[in-house]
Simulated scan of single mutants.
Amino acid sequence: MAVERLLPDTEAEDLIALVREIATDELKPLAAEYEEKERFPREQFRLLGRSGLLGLPYPEEYGGGGLSYEVYLQALEEIAAAWLTIGVGLSVHTMSCYALANHGTDEQRSTWLPDMLGGDLLGAYALSETNAGSDAAALSTRAVLDGADYVITGTKAWITHGGEADFYTTMVRTSPDGSRGISCLLVPADTPGLSAGAPERKMGMTGSTTAQMIFDGARVPATRLVGAEGDGLKLALTALNSGRLGIAACAVGLAQAALDEAVAYTKQRTQFGRPVIDFQGMEFLLADMASAVDSARATYLDAARRRDRGLPFKRQASIAKLVATDAAMKVTTDAVQALGGAGYTKDFPVERYMREAKVPQIFEGTNQIQRMVIARELKNA
C-alpha cells in the first residue's frame, strides 16, 4: 500500500509520485529475475539518471535536484521498497559524490559533477580494506606523488559497484601520520593499473556487484585530489553520516515492502473458514511489524530534518541506521512467519527480503559501531 507521507509542498508530492511510478512500473517487475541471475542493473541506473534521480540532494547548478534530505530520503525509500539493490546503489552513488560536491574546488565541481549527477557516470565509495573496515584509520592503500600524478598501490574491499562503477571516490594513505595521513582521490574506472577482483558470493542483494578493487601502480592526476592532503578520513566519516541516513531509508523501504506482502497474503489466505488476518495472533504480529516500520521512518526523518537545518545530526544518523536496519531484519523475518510455508519459498519475495535485510546491519558501519558512536556522543554532550 502507498505510504501516507507528510511532505513539505506539492512539488515534493509530485516528485514522490513520479518516483513511486518508476519504482512500481520499471523496477519492481525486474527485481526477482535480476537478483536470481546475479545481474547488475546498469540500465536501470541510467533510467534513474535520465529521470533526474541520481543527484537529488545536490545543487541544481551542477545538474542535481536541489532537494532537502527529508524529501530525498523518502524518494530513496520508495525505490528501495521496489528493489533494494537499486535503492542501496543510489545511496552509495550519492555518498560517492559527497566529497567532490562539498569539498572540491569550483573547477573540479564544474568539470566532473554534472556527469556524476546527471546519470552518465555511476559512482562507488572505496574506503574499506580487508584489515580496515570498522577501523577505517588503519587503511594501508598508498598513494605516492610522482610528478603530476599520484601512484596508488593496494586493495580496497567490499566495494559496492566494484568493477561496474565509472568512478571511485577512494581514500588512500599519503603519509604515515595515522588518521591524519589519509587523502581522497577521485579515480576514473578506466585508470591503467586499476582492476576489479571476482564478485563476492553473497546471501542477498546478488544483483548488486560487490568486489575488491586492486590498485597496481595506478596513476591518477594530482588534480583529482579532493580537499587537501590529510583531509581524507574527515571527508569519509562526514560522508558516512549522510550515507547512514540513506541506508536507514533503504531499510525502511525493504521493511515496508515485507509488511505489505504480509498484509496482502494474510487477507486472502483462509484457515478454519476465516482470513488469517482476522486471528488475534496474526493481528498482533502485523501490528508490531507496522509499529516497527513507522518508528524507523520517524528516526530517519528526524535526523534528515536536523541535517537540513544545519544542526548536528551524527548521533541521530547512527540511531536511525541502527533502529531502521534492526527493524528491517525483524520485520522481514516476521513476514516469512506470517506467510508460513509459502514464505519460505521463492514463489513469494519475502524470503529474498529476509536475506537482503541482513547486510544493512553491516555496511556503512556495523550496528555495533553505531552503538559506539551513539554512546560517545552522549559522553561528550
Rank of each mutant, 00 (worst) to 15 (best):
A218H: 02
A218C: 10
A218F: 02
A218K: 04
A218R: 05
A218L: 13
R219H: 04
R219S: 07
V220Q: 08
P221M: 10
P221D: 10
A222T: 14
A222F: 03
A222N: 10
A222E: 10
T223C: 07
R224C: 03
L225C: 09
L225V: 11
L225M: 10
V226F: 05
V226H: 12
G227P: 02
G227R: 09
G227E: 08
G227D: 12
A228L: 14
A228D: 15
E229F: 06
E229S: 09
E229I: 02
G230R: 08
D231T: 01
D231A: 07
D231F: 01
D231K: 08
G232I: 11
G232H: 04
G232C: 06
L233V: 14
L233M: 15
L233S: 05
K234S: 14
K234I: 15
K234G: 13
K234M: 15
L235C: 13
L235A: 07
L237M: 13
L237Y: 02
L237R: 13
T238Y: 03
A239I: 09
A239F: 05
S242Q: 11
S242M: 12
S242W: 01
G243F: 11
R244E: 13
L245M: 15
L245K: 01
L245P: 02
G246A: 07
G246T: 05
G246Q: 12
I247M: 03
A248Q: 08
A249H: 00
C250Y: 06
C250L: 04
C250A: 13
A251G: 13
V252Y: 00
V252C: 09
G253I: 11
G253D: 12
G253Y: 09
L254W: 05
A255G: 03
A255D: 07
